[in-house]
Design a protein around this nucleic acid. Sequence first.
DNA 1: AGAGATTACGAGTGATTGCTCGCATTCGTC
DNA 2: GACGAATGCGAGCAATCACTCGTAATCTCT
Lengths: 213, 213
Amino acid sequence: MTAETAENAETAADRPRKRQARGERRIAQLLEAAGKVFAESGYAATTTNAIAARAGVSPGSLYQYFPNKDAIAAALAEFYADSLDTLLAPFAVVDPAAVTLEEALGSSLGPLVAFHRENPACLVLFVGGHTPGHVMDLQAPLMARTHARIQALLALYAPELPPARLEWGAAVTLAAYKGVLPLVVEADEEQVPELTRELRDLLLGYFERLLRP
Amino acid sequence: MTAETAENAETAADRPRKRQARGERRIAQLLEAAGKVFAESGYAATTTNAIAARAGVSPGSLYQYFPNKDAIAAALAEFYADSLDTLLAPFAVVDPAAVTLEEALGSSLGPLVAFHRENPACLVLFVGGHTPGHVMDLQAPLMARTHARIQALLALYAPELPPARLEWGAAVTLAAYKGVLPLVVEADEEQVPELTRELRDLLLGYFERLLRP
DNA sequence: AGAGATTACGAGTGATTGCTCGCATTCGTC
DNA sequence: GACGAATGCGAGCAATCACTCGTAATCTCT
């Protein structure tokens, strides 16, 4: 997933391994296949052999690139976490004087929804509760960062809100968002814009209630 | 879980079996243990031997009362579905002239939250995505009924809302509710009232936005 | 072309786990 | 107390699955 030039690639993990272009392609194939199978069957029910078969590769080849099943999920999760971090970045530079919350949410939610529809395994690994091992190491920081972003956004539009309320408000917002995403991901293509608007309204409605009682 | 008198109990499934009081007790023990282990480890990672051990019973005894692992989860799920149906019943008899939405939600959400905190496995089986086999047969109808209840409630308070909006509104409400529940279930006891209020505000805020755009 | 490394294969292995079976114990009833 | 039925046990079976290994094909570089 990371395109590394021959010169600078010296991470401790893959130092002794010289990888050919074919190998990089196989890794991409395997991760794509893994995403599909995880999305269909969930983490626990997916077998490594199924991933290999889906990628058109033997089980032995799979284990040439990944030490174990966990590592496959972790590699996927890392890609997802990076992507989401990028997609969530716009929230960090919102100017409350120039842009309303409605506008900010309206423009940023679309790409997020699109990403999750293209990568349904992301929800399986991140919001589906029991994902073991190294995936949590990616999920927890991502969630913490997202929480912080929401909290900062809220503070921006409601400076006088008490910190405790801000804290819980961000947590509830994130939880509700994670709850509705599966609905949007599994819906028909044609209903996505409508559902995205409803998701925006859900968050906006909550924000309004947070800001003025 | 269902207390059946000796006279009327003639379901096709357990007809030929005469069960002693000891057996009923064992079933209750097993289901309680199953609830704990499912809540801790998720469905897939739970072993039948772990359930038996937790109940202080041998694996063989477990299989005297349940034909397979699925049946244990299904029995638990049936109990949960029945309980939730009862807890959700108040929504069917709300009078919009006498009670505001805020009051209706405020009084009904508390018991629901309490139930889920006492039975964390309920969320594992119902909202945690990949639960196999017979559990879905209980989950799908329950969700459909809940969806219908929310939709009816919305229609009561907003008679002029177009049906399509009503449909999606109920779906989004249910999804958001399911998303926030885990947060409330895992929170410390002392923060439950505050979080329940936030959950109520989330739904109310969305309803307000639905009702007058 | 030839050497050395990487890639690819797929049958096989060891560990896990859902589940069974034969037998011992306890209960309900007379 | 005695008999049949229900309960209880736990070692073990069979199937699944993550993972390995010996070997062969293919690439890179000279």
